[in-house]
Design a protein around this nucleic acid. Structure first.
Length: 487
RNA sequence: GCUCCCAUCGACUAGUGGUUAGGUCAUCACUCUUUCACAGUGAAGACACGGGUUCGAGUCCCGUUGGGAGCGCCA
């Protein structure tokens, strides 16, 4: 029987959640759920200097927002607690001690100055790699004990034997091998008593019975060190799967300098969590059919590691925008209403009072032309306020000597119109165009500009119907006052 | 510099020895239309290069070039 699949997402609490990390979390989640396995959230807080207050809460909140649920981890517990590495120091020390006893690791008392000097010297001699010179490996047992008792600052290093070829299999990339000569005697326990990532993640992955290590490709070069550790402990290797990187437009690793990388940024820009998830799922993975829009359930259903491919993927915001718009178009009116009300609270219209009916009508006619919920009042600002300005180029384009007359006529008819309905407006348009012998568009275009301040948007009659007769008339007046003498 | 990884339209990708190299976003055109969108139809657009292997190579092998990542008492 196949053992239960267990994977982990192991971020360090150093600030916001990077979109690349979110994808790693997502792939782990999808893989776990697809295989009825478990997802462990483990906090890798072994760097005291980089720790950021509130980062753990932020990670958890972000996962919640996108709907990634972990099975074991902080605030949730599990059979392999604790899930904060800072609370597992004893464990790492025991394991480090074990390696020392087996001569797979050793104490090192070298000072930072000496280490720097070695490095500089090696660089000066143009050595291909700079490595620790293993000086402390030749210390006698007595010397080591004396130093330890005297409290000399020290670290514990892995004793890498040169001349070996280290091989391991990556699920996505196949066999990878590297010569051990290139690998430094990695520090396992730092002088502050905390483990390095390398030791901590190997020990925890083993103890937490992690079966598949799914992580970013940036870890590939340090995997041989981890393999060495598994061997030193005599443990069976887990399955490694190194995900292709998420890239900037210029193909460098996705970074802050070239746009937003924090999940929060996308949230505040108005991207829907489902749309974001849908989008990043498709980066580096393909579902083997031609569908583009997937619910999280469908993603779980279709996700396999075989569908992950090798090369990095550029994070293309254009496609994300399309997906977001797709999701919005699929929403029911009332769902959008709730979202709109939420966003309105933080907008400049927060003090205004709009009826559900009014907002619902806006939603209905604006829905096909929005990418974000806030487009409802940003692109459709004319439903919420008078146009502040009219683009002069547009005015110039549509204005002709008859414009004043046409608009005035339309306005006057509006004033005496008995019932303000679409049919009547339509009639009026037809009548005026017939009487003045002009095309309907010659009324519509200036009307649209006067009422909305733009030449884009839903049908002008729908707009007029929504904002009402009074406002329409006053907007026409305002427009005429401004331009009738300018041409 | 060294090590490792990677290489199909502008972008995301399908393709596992025989395809008119397919789809999606973006772009362009047309249709619909009072404008803008939506929708529909269509167009343009790619196998980095060079050698092999093979009857046959985007697909396998080698090399070149290009790109990326990593080389910390950071993760």
């Amino acid at each position: 029987m196949q053992k239960d699949i267990r994977v982990r997402y192991a971020p360090s609490p150093t600030g916001f959640v990077h979109i690349g990390n979110l994808r790693t979390a997502l792939f782990n989640y999808l893989f776990a759920k697809h295989n009825n396995g478990k997802l462990v959230l483990r906090i890798e807080d072994t760097d005291q200097l980089r720790k950021v207050e509130g980062a753990v809460e932020n990670i958890i909140r972000t996962l919640q927002w996108v709907g990634i649920e972990y099975d074991e981890g902080p605030y949730k517990g599990g059979d392999y607690a604790p899930y904060f590495q800072s609370e597992r120091l004893e464990i790492y020390h025991e394991h480090a001690k074990y390696l020392i006893d087996k001569k797979k690791a050793y104490y090192c008392f070298c000072t930072e100055e000496r280490l720097n000097a070695i490095k500089q010297e090696q660089q000066k001699q143009k050595q291909p790699v700079t490595k620790y010179d293993k000086k402390c490996l030749s210390l006698t047992e007595d010397e080591v004990q004396k130093n330890l008792q005297a409290g000399v600052p020290h670290v514990i290093r892995l004793n890498v034997i040169p001349g070996m070829t280290i091989k391991f299999n990556d699920f996505i990339r196949g066999e990878v091998q590297i010569l051990s000569d290139l690998i430094d005697d990695q520090v396992l326990i730092k002088s502050d008593g905390y483990p390095t990532y390398h030791l901590a993640n190997v020990v925890d992955d083993y103890l937490m019975k992690i079966t598949h290590i799914i992580r970013g490709e940036e870890w590939l070069p340090s995997t041989p060190k981890h393999v060495l550790l598994y061997e030193a402990f005599g443990w069976e290797l887990p399955i490694f799967a190194h995900l292709p990187l998420l890239l900037n437009k210029d193909r460098s690793k996705l970074s802050k300098r070239q746009g937003d990388v924090a999940v929060e940024d996308y949230k505040s820009k108005g991207y829907l969590p489902d749309a974001l998830i849908n989008f990043i799922a498709l980066l580096g993975w393909n579902p083997k059919d031609e569908q583009e829009i997937f619910s999280i359930t469908e993603l779980i259903d279709k996700f396999t590691l075989e569908g992950v491919h090798k090369s990095g993927a550029i994070f293309d915001i254009e496609k994300l925008n399309w997906i977001n718009a797709e999701y919005l178009r699929k929403k029911q009116g009332f769902e959008l209403l709730i979202m709109l009300r939420e966003e309105l609270k933080n907008s400049k219209y927060s003090n205004e009072d709009y009826s559900d009916e009014y907002l619902m009508n806006i939603i209905t006619i604006m829905k096909p032309r929005i990418t974000f919920v806030r487009d409802l009042y940003e692109k459709g600002y004319y439903f919420f306020e008078e146009p502040q300005d009219y683009d002069f180029n547009l005015v110039e384009k549509i204005w002709n000597p008859t414009t004043t007359g046409i608009l005035t006529r339309f306005k006057d008819e509006l004033k005496i119109m008995q019932s303000f309905t679409k049919e009547n407006l339509e009639e009026e348009l037809k009548r005026i165009s017939a009487e003045l012998n002009i095309k309907k568009s010659q009324i519509i275009q200036p009307l649209r500009l006067a009422v909305t301040g733009t030449t884009e948007g839903p049908g002008i009659l729908e707009i007029i119907l929504l904002i009402g007769k009074e406002k329409t008339i006053s907007r026409i007046n305002r427009f005429l006052e401004k331009y009738q003498n300018n041409f």
